[in-house]
Design a protein around this nucleic acid. Structure first.
Lengths: 197, 197
DNA sequence: GTCTATAGCTGGATAGAC
DNA sequence: GTCTATCCAGCTATAGAC
């Protein structure tokens, strides 16, 4: 019983350590810097273990993406149950911690088919969830929801958030406050002042 | 006179051919596939010529970026002189042909400092031009321009365009028409139906 | 201006010992 | 599970012939 537990614990933590290391390198140096040697060095493990656990780099990237996407999806589901679902959705979409990694994966998808497929499916899943929820929410507000349709609002929030985060990464913030205010004024009109975050 | 002209012509065309090849590879296979060997092969030249003309890969990427940015800047200047400046600006921002390359450069900037600096300066230059022009244009419309401030409108067009193009690259177009309609309805209210493109 | 040749490095991936 | 050792490929960059 002891040995079995330890072996399992070991493999789980090594596996996670490799993913953690890959994620950190990806964030700090870009996806192109993610190599088996660097992952191993940062994780304090051997580079051959990457192949033992993941088979190849494609699978490692896919697993890393899924790990983050699943967490975000759950977070968004929770957000939509809140008392101010639009505010919570906006905060969830605009969450800084995940955007940087997402942008790296988008770039990576340009030359890794496996990643491209994974991102596409994940994006559609998120979009479907958001659209269903926002349709339901805006439906209750009737004409007060204008001028935005559910689909337009979902894309508006996603686009603005992604673009601002991208520019922030370059140290650009001109007019950002105005763009955020555009969205938050609308949210305030419908759901009142943001009560928490 | 003849020899001088020919030599100049030769170097100009080889140089341009290398840039063209780099651009094509970047678009079709992603920036990570852009190597001196591949550039040379596609351009029908020798890989050492990349170093003869550009010194190193950083400079090649910077020159390639500038070549496109200068063209776009000029195009946008022209657009803002049109009879329907907002429509023309929107068309210019949403121009498909340049977005894909821009996104590659944004990704490349993550691990090439020279590119990061170049993109930042260029983006600020574009933003400044757009903001000045849109402030002037919306100023003439007074209250009819609401609910958008100049800065918000500029970021709205930029964000939506970039995000839709990015999703298109993944084969996703859910709600895209609604988002485009959001912008174009506004433009129609201010400038009437789009008269040309 | 264009070429060949090559140094020097880093990468993915695998075989096999422990 | 974890390690060492190694193969082979690709890259940037330079030296030097033509």
């Amino acid at each position: 019983m002891k040995s079995q537990r330890d072996v399992t614990a070991d493999s789980v933590t090594t596996r996670a350590a490799l993913l953690d290391a890959a994620e950190q390198i990806m964030l700090e140096q870009g996806y192109a810097a993610v190599s088996t040697r660097r992952i191993a060095a940062l994780a304090g493990a051997n580079s051959a273990l990457v192949y033992y656990y993941f088979g190849n780099m494609d699978n490692l990237f896919v697993e890393l993406f899924r790990r983050g996407a699943d967490l975000s999806y759950q977070h968004q589901l929770d957000a939509l149950q809140s008392a101010q679902p639009l505010w919570a959705l906006w905060d969830s979409i605009h969450d800084q911690s995940r955007t940087a990694l997402t942008m790296e994966f988008v770039a990576l998808a340009n030359h890794r088919k496996a990643i491209r497929i994974e991102i596409t499916e994940s994006s559609k899943r998120f979009r479907a969830l958001q659209l269903t929820a926002v349709t339901d929410i805006l439906g209750k507000y009737g004409e007060r929801a204008l001028p935005y349709t559910p689909g337009a609002l979902v894309l508006l929030m996603s686009s603005i958030s992604r673009f601002l985060r991208m520019e922030e990464a370059f140290g650009i913030d001109t007019c950002h406050a105005e763009a955020v205010e555009l969205i938050e004024t609308y949210l305030r009109d419908l759901e009142g002042a943001r009560s928490m975050r």
